[in-house]
Structure formats: C-alpha cells, structure tokens
C-alpha cells in the first residue's frame, strides 16, 4: 500500500504557472485526474513520476521524495502519454528490456506475465512500428506492470483508443485498484473518469478545483447555474411565466438576438417545466440551446465554486 503525497506544490515554467499550490493525496484504488487540456495534469504527473522537480512544495511516495530518487521506480509503473517507444524492437523485446532494466531476477518470466496481463502475447513477436494505437498502449501498460509496482501512473491512457480497447483497459485498471495498488490516470473527459475512478481530483488552470467521489463531482457539475438561449413565438410572455417558476434565477431579453437568455438554477426542474409552461401559455418554442455546455465552462464554474 503506497500513497503519493502532494503538499503545497507549485510548478512554474518561466513566468507561466502550470501547477498552483496543489495539495492532495493519491491513495490505493483508482483515482481519476480530471481537467481540461492544458490544466496542468501532465505537469502534475511528471512531478509524481520524478521527471520534474516541484518549484515549491513536495511530492513524496509515502515519505520519500520522488525527484532524483531512482529507487522510487521500484514502486512506480509509468505509462507516458508520448508515443516514442523504441519502434525498432518487437513488443516482446521492449517489455523484456524494461524487465531487465528493473534488475528483476527472472526478466523473461516477468515480461511474459506482463504481456499476458495486457493480452499481447500473440503480437509480442511483431515490431512495435507495426502496432495500432491500442496495441502500443497495451505494450506500454505491460512495460509499466512488468515489475509489479504498487503505484501506476497513466497520462491520458484512453486517448485514441477504440471503445473495445477502452473497456479492456478500464477492466484492467479496475482490477489493479481492487488489488490495492495506487492507480492514477488523467483524462479530460468526465464520462471516462466517472466510469472508472472511485475518487476524482479535478484540476483547472493549474489549481486543485475539486476532490471527492464521482457522485459529488457530478452533482457539483449539474447543480451549477445553466444558461440557455431560448427563442419562442412570444418571448416576453414566456419570460414572465419562467421568472415566476423557482427553477430560474434570471432572465434577460436580448433584443439584438431576439431571444431570451435564461439562467436556470435547478437543471432538472427547468428542463421539464419549460415545455409545460410554454404549452400552458400557448407559446411555441423555436430554439432552446444551452449556451455554456462546454467542458471548460463546467470546469471554470468548479473553480469559482
């Protein structure tokens, strides 16, 4: 059982702050690191995997620092996001080389076991350059698992995978988590994270925005005020009916757009009430479109919350 502690950690590049005063513990089980692209997820993972020194604060494996501590890699398995991986080797040679580099007593057996775990035994004799994206990802997994690490760090592991490969990897990571390993993966897709992670850490613009189980994060995300653009046969009458309903908190009549800008506070109630109100008042709805559904706006709401 190993825990990664991130304590008041910041990392800046020149005058760009990539990670800003983050404190979190990554415990055994599967943790999802969620955030939009460019939020600092990779920077955080690079610090957890010993490839970046924190500019301030400390990143430790249990109580031992990770930066400049090669012994930490006995416990860490890393699946990097980048594709470079000795394409001139076969998958089998690649995993075997990783086993040897770990100094394992029987690297051949360890490599075979790891290849079997990711279901790549059949393709182990083919050169990596001939592999599909999903196969490369699985061989990377095998190389990270070859020394049976207690910590597994994966940077955007599902990128470019087809649904079947994705399910296979999710099953594998779930098993790893159930076995008591500390599994951390990053993603910018909420659905991906909530399918797999029991615990979610949200990073936005370098800051730690939220932390908890996925139900809490999901609620935070759906409970936020939603904005809609609504056009109808009688905007003013509809506005009057909507503001009388507790599901809305504000309505603006946008003369230029000839539309209503509605702020809903109770997402579920608003979506069921809106068509009923329109029908009751004999109003035809022409347009109902959410105006801030992008992931970025969800995240920025989380940061300000």
């Amino acid at each position: 059982m190993t825990t990664i502690h991130i304590a008041k950690t910041s990392r800046w590049f020149g005058n760009v702050v990539a990670v800003n005063d983050v404190t979190m513990d990554i415990r055994p089980g599967v943790t999802g690191l969620l955030g939009p692209n460019g939020a600092g997820k990779s920077t955080l993972i690079h610090m957890m995997s010993g490839f970046l020194a924190p500019s301030s604060g400390a990143v430790t494996l249990d109580e031992r620092p990770i930066w400049r501590n090669a012994a930490a890699y006995r416990e860490i398995g890393l699946v990097p996001e980048r594709e470079g991986m000795y394409d001139y080797l076969t998958g089998g040679e690649f995993v075997l080389a990783n086993a040897e580099l770990h100094g394992l007593p029987d690297p051949g057996a360890a490599a075979r076991r790891a290849l079997d775990t990711v279901d790549m035994t059949g393709a182990a004799d083919r050169r990596i350059s001939t592999y599909s994206k999903g196969m490369r990802q699985r061989v990377k997994m095998a190389s990270a698992l070859v020394h049976d690490p207690s910590v597994l760090l994966l940077d955007e592991p599902f990128n470019g995978m087809d649904p079947r490969q994705r399910m296979h990897l999710m099953d594998l990571l779930r098993t790893m988590g159930d076995e008591g390993r500390t599994v951390l993966f990053s993603s910018h897709i909420l659905e991906e994270v909530e399918q797999l992670a029991t615990h979610i850490e949200v990073i936005v613009a370098g800051r730690h925005a939220a932390s908890g189980d996925y139900r809490r994060i999901r609620r935070l995300m759906t409970d936020r005020p939603h904005r809609y653009l609504v056009r109808s046969s009688d905007d003013r009458a509809l506005a009057a009916a909507l503001i009388a309903d507790p599901s809305t908190s504000g309505i603006e009549f946008d003369a230029a757009e000839r539309a209503l800008r509605v702020q809903a506070v109770d997402f579920g109630r608003f979506t069921t009430r809106l068509p009923l109100l329109a029908r009751d008042n004999g109003i035809r709805l022409l347009t109902v479109s959410p105006s801030d559904e992008s992931l970025e706006s969800v995240f920025s709401y989380l940061v300000s919350a």
Binding site: S49, G50, F51, A70, A71, A72, Y73, R74, I76, L78, P80, R82, E83, G84, M85, Y86, F94, A97, N98, L101, H102, G103, S143
Partner: peptide
C-alpha cells in the same frame, strides 16, 4: 531517444542515470 520521449523508459528505472 530524448527527442521522441522514449528515454523515459530508461529513466523510469531504478538505475543511476
């Protein structure tokens, strides 16, 4: 190896750089 990032597979090992 440094260019394409594959050096991480050497560096992420209990091996003196």
């Amino acid at each position: 190896e440094i260019d394409d990032g594959s050096i991480v597979y050497l560096l992420s090992k209990p091996l003196d750089r």
